[in-house]
Amino acid sequence: MRPTTPPNHVTPASPAIREEDLQAEERFEDELIMHLERDQFVAETSRPVPRAQLSRGATAGLWALRVFVIIVSLMVIYAFIAQLG
């Protein structure tokens, strides 16, 4: 992802101007950073959360619900197609 452009970003003509720009850039980034919580940054949210260990019962329950929902969905779709006929 492209880093944001700081204000007054100009090509430095002299070391003095370059120093001033760098300081402005740092201040701008500091101000932006302080308004966000650390785990709000894209760099942080891009890291996946660890996988949860589901119990056998929970996994079986989820699969049972999933299969049930698919069966009922197919019934609704069948009824929908039958209506068209």
Binding site: E29, E31, L32, H35, F41, V42, V49
Partner: peptide, 28 residues
Amino acid sequence: ATEAPVSPARLLPPPLTEEDAARSEDRS
């Protein structure tokens, strides 16, 4: 769940993207 042992690198602010910058402006 995402917490890791604090290393010196973790103390530095993460790199700022345009998405972060826009969100930060709203949060300000």
